[in-house]
Design a protein around this nucleic acid. Structure first.
Lengths: 197, 197
DNA sequence: CGTTAATTCGAGCGAACGTTCGATAGAACG
DNA sequence: CGTTCTATCGAACGTTCGCTCGAATTAACG
């Protein structure tokens, strides 16, 4: 039923917006129903529970991120592939309203099997990025891959808290700057004599 | 009354732990009362409202952070002062259980005057760090102070999500590594020819 | 001791929560 | 037409929420 699927996506759109704006716990099923312009009982025809709604929203976000990451397989050069990943990841964080908040915070509210499944996907996505980093020519024995990946993701995932359109320039430029700090920093630690203090 | 103050701090300790662990909205006043080993009505003898409880907890955390930052005034060298700040900030993020979560997320739940006051303190603290960065000898015309401070705080504030005791080494060492990545990265952008690609 | 003030609690208020149920309206199909 | 299935809703369930009140208990002081 095509009309069902369209309505279903509409509802998930509204749900995602509300979770991103107010957070999972501060959003009620009545809020979602109102945003989707239907009754609470009608909402439950599409969503079995609030937890399932959060799980569906998270799954959709991961689907988009993974789809963007999957397109990187065509890029042979490891440095360019990492650059493309950084650009895509930051772009998703900074566009799409505050959808990133659902992943970075609300996801922890998922219990049981829902929680296990989503935490697994989160780990997979992050290790995908750590893999890209480890394949760089610039490998440093002085910085562990865990800290390196953590530093890179930190700069990227923190960006939504300070980035302002029109003040901080184009998103791709910010992505390149962050990547340059990261690569320059790693390189400086790997060969500290080449940078004067 | 000394006994009152001691009890008050005990209650705020319990409140901070619960907010950090489960989040503001997922924590009920009954949870707090139970953790503080008293009745709900008795709890309201100390706390006028749940919002006030969050505000008090946030204030306490900022007091600690500001106190640590205030000790840096004795350090003359800008680079060493920044290093001390980075160490102190990361140490607070990684010790004190998950208190950082209250600041980085739950604080947004504060309404009205409470919210205004805390957001002002947050901005002050962050601009304090941006000030330290701008006073470095290494100034780059290619990286704006906003992006630089955002990158540094990103690496620091994201650390609690990946740091594991016993796996990633001493906290001060991690702080030094993050600072090295930051300074090396900024320097590399400032004088790109000195780092081979 | 009696009196006053500080501290704690049981009980419950109204509201909002997630969720369910039976009924209903419309479309689909014979 | 009647029947079946899809989609929607009003009303309400039981629970928990933040919060309050009046009474009881304890400590302080004369």
């Amino acid at each position: 039923m095509q009309s069902y699927d369209r309505r279903f996506e509409d509802i998930l759109d509204s749900t995602e917006d509300l979770f991103a704006e107010k957070g999972f716990h501060a959003t009620s099923m009545r809020d979602i129903a109102h945003a989707a312009e239907m009754s609470i009982a009608g909402l439950y025809y599409y969503l079995p529970s609030k937890q399932a709604a959060l799980c569906l929203v998270c799954t959709r976000i991961f689907d988009r991120l993974d789809a963007a990451a999957h397109e990187l397989h065509g890029i042979a050069d490891p440095a360019e592939r990492l650059r493309a990943f950084v650009r895509a990841h930051l772009a998703y964080m900074l566009r799409n309203d505050d959808a990133y908040r659902v992943l970075l915070h609300d996801m922890d509210a998922l219990d049981g099997e829902y929680g296990d499944r989503m935490r697994l996907r989160k780990r997979r996505y992050f290790s995908l990025a750590a893999d890209l980093v480890s394949r760089l020519d610039v490998h440093s024995a002085f910085v562990s891959p865990r800290i390196a990946a953590g530093a890179l993701f930190g700069m990227l995932n923190w960006a939504p808290t300070w980035y302002r359109r029109g003040v901080d320039g184009a998103i791709d430029t910010v992505a390149d700057t962050i990547l340059a700090i990261f690569l320059g920093g790693i390189s400086a630690i790997a060969s500290p004599l080449e940078v004067r203090s």
